[in-house]
């Protein structure tokens, strides 16, 4: 009787040890992943393989609500419009690794240079700053945490098609 009880206790102990070992191994087998960032438009994806990803975002604010934040980049001699952000909007672009200089125009031109590495995501915040006459958009480097805090209130800009659909007049 005593031996039977002892055997049962040992078996029970081994069962617990086996489960604990399995759990520990499962934890160490996979590295912890960053939690996905959810916005009003969906989940922020990883960059395309071999490319960098830049997330431009403009938190919702009454400040400068009537002003736009249009992000541009020179491609040779051509001015390329990268994103047009209203209040509470964001936009994601896939870019080739290397140096990129983005700028906005307004009362004054504001420029931000970034050095993009492959498979990395960068965050750029657009603020509407005060000006002597009208104010203007400012681009500033930001980070994942700052974007994640605002993400739930951000909607992705639909691209140039979004502006075409707006009624004129």
């Amino acid at each position: 009787m005593k031996f039977t009880a002892l055997r049962l206790a040992v078996v029970a102990g081994l069962m617990v040890a086996g489960v604990a070992h399995a759990q520990e191994a499962a934890v160490t087998a996979s590295a912890p992943a960053l939690p996905p960032i959810k916005t009003k438009s969906g989940v922020l994806d990883e960059p395309e393989a071999g490319k960098g990803q830049v997330v431009f975002f403009r938190p919702g604010s009454i400040m400068g609500i009537a002003l736009g934040c249009t992000v541009r980049e020179m491609e040779g001699a051509v001015v390329n419009e990268v994103a047009r952000l209203g209040s509470g909007k964001y936009y994601v672009v896939q870019v080739e690794p290397g140096r990129h200089e983005y700028f906005t125009t307004g009362e004054r031109t504001d420029t931000l240079a970034l050095e993009i590495e492959p498979d990395e995501t960068y965050f750029v915040k657009c603020n509407i700053g005060m000006g002597l006459v009208a104010g203007g958009a400012n681009l500033s480097p930001s980070d994942r945490e700052a974007f994640a805090k605002k993400a739930k209130g951000l909607k992705m800009w639909a691209g140039h098609d979004e502006d075409k659909k707006k009624p004129k007049g």
Partner: peptide
């Protein structure tokens, strides 16, 4: 600090 940008961050 995973996911943080390469730039000096005013936020953190």
């Amino acid at each position: 600090r995973p996911g943080t940008a390469l730039a000096a961050s005013m936020v953190v």
